[in-house]
Design a protein around this nucleic acid. Structure first.
Lengths: 102, 102
DNA sequence: CGTCAGGTACGATGCAAACCGTACCTTGAG
DNA sequence: CTCAAGGTACGGTTTGCATCGTACCTGACG
């Protein structure tokens, strides 16, 4: 993988964001992170998605490339973090919209 | 087609909405309607989408089934209307989010 | 050091979506 | 009535996505 394939905040594309959030599993990830305090890091395999490891990697890559999450490599595990401040700055209504599904 | 396949306002699904808006052509339709006054009806073929008639029908069906637009059969033409009040009631942040792309 | 767990890369598969041409229906206009 | 224009339905193709198994890499831990 390229060292980082997360887009800069100003390069985020609404099309990619909609496509990422159209999938139920990926929406679950974002909603789960949204329900926790800002800055929370979560283990990628802690979301309980009923898919294989390979598919997990795929879903997190889509979320990352859409700019929704940030991934931190902590030794041997991979923590996911919502890019909350970037999202609030560029798409202030997105978080409010997602909250309507909780 | 069933007489109406538009979901009731309370049956709208955020997943379907995201999926519908992930497509650039469908987003163009919604953004165009959004730029006009509430209640504006627009001819389905007036959006300048570079696709065939058959594909046009497909895209408008997706928008309709997601609950984003309402279609009125006027004689032998077919007018599209944004379901603005339903959207504002159930997903108040959606319209604000879409406006960030204009 | 050996081993196991967490991740990624790669290749394959199955399904859904976008797209088109064609045929057909309806209706407003002439 | 006739006909062209707007739409839909249907069948087909192609592309993309979700999914998986497998192989491999890398740290943590005994």
């Amino acid at each position: 993988m390229p060292d980082t394939d997360e887009p800069a905040a100003e390069d985020m594309d609404l099309g990619a964001i909609f496509a990422a959030l159209a999938d139920r599993h990926r929406r679950t990830v974002v909603l789960t992170l949204l329900a926790e305090p800002d800055g929370t890091e979560r283990h990628c395999s802690s979301f309980g998605l009923p898919v294989s490891k390979a598919t997990l990697t795929h879903h997190f890559r889509v979320l990352r490339q859409a700019g929704l999450i940030h991934q931190v490599n902590r030794g041997n595990s991979n923590m996911a973090q919502l890019r909350r401040s970037d999202l609030e700055r560029h798409f202030p209504a997105l978080i409010a919209l997602l909250r309507t599904e909780i």
